[in-house]
Structures are given as structure tokens and as C-alpha cells.
Design a protein around this nucleic acid. Structure first.
Length: 488
RNA sequence: CGGGGCGUAGCUUAGCCCGGUAGAGCGCCUGCUUCGGGAGCAGGAGGUCGGAGGUUCAAAUCCUCUCGCCCCGACCA
């Protein structure tokens, strides 16, 4: 029986994560090192993420397109910082059709180069701007060490790419999309994030500025869950992306790019998972409610299955959420006892379970069990649909609150010594809000000594109001308040 | 790529030191009884012991090489 339980988070967080991902059938290892198969349970979550984000992108004026997987190798070399960042992890195709290629092709690690080279063809006038585009795609980065969802050789993501006439417009776009990510992560994933600016050492290769969403996992390490870049004119200059302005001058365009990936599924697991398994916030759950009918005799079996289907129809037919119908599954499998089904659905993280047995039928009620709190409660059949919808809404809200409380409980906002900092980082881990003198050498030294990095210079609302005025390491006056943590 | 660990049935593994017919638990299939928190009994299927080579009368076991996975480091938008 003990082999049915997951390794606990406390015993071995890393083993817990791997077991959960495999056993909840989110993903599996592929025959190729470092690659993964995303199974229906995992892909279903990704589809929910895609739909929500895609709607948000459309609402902010973006349109989808698709650019090719293969990029001429020379393109990567046109932006100096970019090639330095990506060349080491590029997969390169040298042969095709049985012949050696004239020019090797890089499998895209990201698409700035190919996209801005195309934008250059399409833009002549300021009237052609802005271009607001997005693509859903796979990318390949030849990583040394891989983890399911968190770092694999190939992963799925979206990458938004825009071109603007002015710096300020591009800056506003980059910040707007950071806000979209934040909204998505909080309101859909129930995963609170700290948003802010990356330091030069941590920014995207080729960007002017990088903003990120940083989430805290249950081992108190940070996960960079999304990034948004103001690329300045770096790529426009490299790919000759120019336009004639209103006043007649020729100018380079200003670009942004922004992306989130299937890595967020890893973030979801490490934010909400518990020792029983996954917990999916209702808005992201492909199945929000699973109905488990309970019967003894054949006669009861047909009555209960029928009642379960009727309950499902009541729930899915309810229009109180508009087009967003309650997503319900009836577990009608035979030969498996109800208890076994409970464990299985809990492992998979279905937000709400409804148990329906002969006693409930007699009472015109059913038993609900929340996955997040594991609290059970009887609900009358009368008005069941709005009550279930309300419960799902509550679960969604409570999961965000719980995650936020956990994050703040493991954040350090008071002034501490560097020795204490090391003790914390090397011990239980934390987000440490501290002063920084702005010197990259200090950042490098801390990384070297503790493996902690500056996750971001947080936006004002995340900062400690009367934050430390002095640098954590040198004691000099601080240039910025920053968040230190170890990261994935 | 460096250090460590591990590859035996779908999963978890025993056997390996000390060579001699490959075992168990879970899962799976069939039947009966069960069914409100991981069911019981009976019967059954399933293995080129990661791969290649070597030593030997005989290799899961000893030797060499190789591939993969996990952990720690280095690296990492």
C-alpha cells in the first residue's frame, strides 16, 4: 500500500515532482534524451492555457501567424549578443535529402531573427506599424540538464513579436504583455508572481530590457514563468527593419518579444501539488468535476449511473457561466471500487469530486469533496449547478490566496546580514528583498557563493515600502531593491 | 562534459560479493463474491536480465566497451 503513495515533498522535493508528473500522466520520457511526450492529461492543461492566453492576445490586438522551424544559420549571427546567447544551444541541420546543405539550418531556439527579417520585407511606412503578431510553436534548445516540463530540449510556447515606431510605444507593449502574463498566472493558474525588470546579467540575449514573472515554488526556489522584452532597435538594425516616418526620415523600428511555455505546467505542479498529487485550479482543469457513482447491486448500478448522467446534464446544461460550461466527467468504470477512483482523481488533480450513492439519491443530495482543502460537504440536488459553480469559483480564489500566503511567509523583507542571507538561501530557501548597489560583480559573487541570483528588480507594488537602503553585500547605498533567490 | 548512483515482467524490485533451471509484490486477463476512501478468493498471461563483445563446460552474476535514466557540479533565454 505504501508503494501507492508519492514520495513526500518533505522527503525529496525533486523525486516528488518527477513521480507526480509521471504518475498523474502529464508526461513521459521519450526515447531521445532530454525530450518528453506530453500526454493528454498534460496537454489538456496546455490547451486550456493556450485558449485563455490566445483570447487575451486577441483582445490586445494581436494576430497569430506561423514562421518556419528552420532558420538560416547566418541569421543567428547577425545580432552579436543574440548569437552569443543562443549559438551554444542551437541544434543545427547540416544534411537534407541525402545531401550536405550549402548553408546549415538552425532549428529555431526562438524566432526573432526569422521574424524581423520578414517584418523588414513588409514594413515601409510608419503607416505599416505597429505590427502585433504572435505564434504558437515548438522551439529547440540543446540543454545539458533537463527536467520534465521545466527544461527539455524541445518545448512548446508562444512567442509574441511586435514592431513599433517609437521606443515608448515598444516599452508600453512590453509592459502591457507582462501584465497580461501576470493576470493569466494569477487569475487562471492561481499562481502569484512578482513582476519586475531583469538585471543586465539576466536579460535576454539581444534585448534592451527584459521583464519577467517570477513565481515561488514550494521548495522556495523561483521559477521564471514568463518574460517580456523591449528589444530596442537591436534586431531592426541587424535585419534592416526600417520605415519612413511621418516627417519623411528613415528610422529603425522598435521591437518587442514575449513568451510563455509549457514550463508553466511545471510551475503549476510545484505551486499547487501536494503529497496526494496534483491540484489543478478549476479554470485550467480540462475536467472540473468528476462524478463517482456508488452502487452495490445491479439494480442500484443502473439507477446510479442514470442519476450520474442526469447530474452531469444538469451541470453542463447550466448557462450561468455563459459559453463556459461546467466541465464534467462521469467515472462509470466497473470493477474498481469508489475509493480507488477517489485516489486516482486526486492524483490527477481534478478540482471537485461528487460522490453519488443510494443514500444521496434518497436524500435528493450528493457529497462534494474539494481537492484543494479535501473538505467534504453535502449539497442538495435542488440548485446544484449554481452551487457547484460557486464552489469552483471559491476553490479558484482560495488556491490563489493560499499560494500567495505561502510565498509571503517565505519571503524576507527585513534587513539581514549577508551571513544570514547565505544561511537562508542554503537552508530552507526564500525570496529575499534586499538592497543592491547595482554592481554586476556583486551579483556574480553572490551567484558564485550561494547559487542565488537577482530574480528581478520588482515593480513598486511588490517592493517593501521602507526597504533596505543599503546593499546586502557591500553595505553601500542601494541603487535598487531586488529579489534574491535560487532559481530553476 | 566531470563526480556519484541505477538499468532484471507494464511498475517497484530480490538474486550479483561467492557463476549452475529467473523469483516476489503491485498492476494486467478470466470467473465468482464485492463496491460510501486504494477489495477478497481461485485460475492465467507476461522476461533475448539495457545493448555489444570477451572469459568459462556454463554468465543476470566476472571483465571490457557502449547506450540510457536519476542525483550533485559546470552550463543555462
Amino acid at each position: 500500500m505504501s508503494d501507492k503513495a508519492l514520495t513526500t515533498r518533505a522527503a525529496d522535493f525533486s523525486a516528488w515532482y518527477n513521480e507526480l508528473v509521471l504518475r498523474a500522466e502529464l508526461a513521459d520520457y521519450s526515447p531521445v534524451r532530454g525530450c518528453m511526450v506530453i500526454r493528454p492529461n498534460g496537454y489538456g492543461i496546455w490547451e486550456r492555457m493556450q485558449r485563455a492566453l490566445d483570447d487575451m492576445f486577441k483582445a490586445t490586438g494581436h494576430r497569430n501567424a506561423y514562421f518556419p522551424l528552420f532558420i538560416p544559420e547566418s541569421f543567428l549571427h547577425k545580432e552579436a549578443e543574440h548569437v552569443e546567447g543562443f549559438a551554444p544551444e542551437a541544434a543545427v541541420v547540416t544534411h537534407g535529402g541525402g545531401k550536405k546543405l550549402e548553408e546549415p539550418l538552425v532549428v529555431r531556439p526562438t524566432s526573432e531573427t526569422i521574424i524581423y527579417s520578414m517584418f523588414a520585407k513588409w514594413v515601409q511606412s510608419y503607416r505599416d506599424l505597429p505590427i502585433l503578431m504572435n505564434q504558437w510553436a515548438n522551439v529547440v534548445r540543446w540543454e545539458m540538464r533537463t527536467r520534465l516540463f521545466l527544461r527539455t530540449l524541445e518545448f512548446l510556447w508562444q512567442e509574441g513579436h511586435t514592431a513599433h515606431a517609437t521606443h515608448d510605444e515598444a516599452e508600453a507593449e512590453a509592459r502591457q504583455m507582462l501584465g497580461v502574463y501576470r493576470t493569466f498566472m494569477e487569475e487562471w493558474m492561481a499562481m502569484p508572481v512578482v513582476t519586475g525588470l531583469k538585471t543586465p546579467a539576466e536579460k535576454f540575449a539581444g534585448a534592451l530590457r527584459t521583464y519577467s514573472c517570477e513565481a515561488m515554488m514550494q521548495d522556495n526556489k523561483a521559477l521564471q514563468a514568463g518574460t517580456s522584452h523591449n528589444l530596442g532597435q537591436n534586431f531592426a538594425k541587424a535585419f534592416d527593419l526600417k520605415f519612413q516616418s511621418e516627417s519623411g526620415s528613415i528610422e529603425y523600428a522598435w521591437n518587442t518579444s514575449w513568451g510563455v511555455s509549457t514550463r508553466m505546467i511545471g510551475g503549476l505542479v510545484m505551486t499547487h501539488g501536494d503529497d496526494t498529487g496534483l491540484r489543478i485550479p478549476p479554470r485550467l482543469a480540462p475536467i472540473e468535476v468528476v462524478i463517482v457513482p456508488i452502487w452495490k447491486s445491479d439494480e442500484e448500478r443502473s439507477r446510479l449511473l442514470e442519476a450520474a448522467q442526469r447530474l452531469k446534464a444538469d451541470l453542463t446544461g447550466w448557462g450561468g457561466r455563459g459559453e463556459d460550461r461546467i466541465r464534467v466527467h462521469v467515472d462509470a468504470r466497473e470493477g474498481i471500487k469508489p475509493g480507488a477512483k477517489y485516489y486516482e482523481w486526486e492524483l490527477q488533480g481534478i478540482p471537485l469530486r461528487i460522490e453519488l450513492g443510494p443514500r444521496d439519491l434518497a436524500n435528493q443530495a450528493c457529497m462534494t469533496a474539494r481537492r484543494d482543502t479535501r473538505v467534504k460537504a453535502v449539497l442538495p440536488m435542488e440548485g446544484i449547478a449554481p452551487a457547484v459553480a460557486e464552489l469552483l469559483h471559491t476553490i479558484q480564489r482560495d488556491m490563489l490566496h493560499a499560494a500567495r500566503e505561502r510565498r509571503e511567509a517565505n519571503s524576507v523583507r527585513e534587513a539581514i546580514s549577508y551571513d544570514r542571507f547565505r544561511e537562508l538561501i542554503e537552508g530552507e530557501g526564500a525570496f529575499v528583498y534586499a538592497g543592491w548597489n547595482g554592481d554586476p560583480a556583486v551579483e556574480a559573487k553572490v551567484k558564485e557563493e550561494t547559487k542565488a541570483t537577482i530574480r528581478c528588480i520588482p515593480e513598486p507594488e511588490f517592493r517593501t515600502p521602507d526597504g533596505p537602503a543599503r546593499c546586502l553585500v557591500t553595505g553601500e547605498p542601494a541603487q535598487h531593491q531586488v529579489v534574491w533567490a535560487r532559481a530553476y
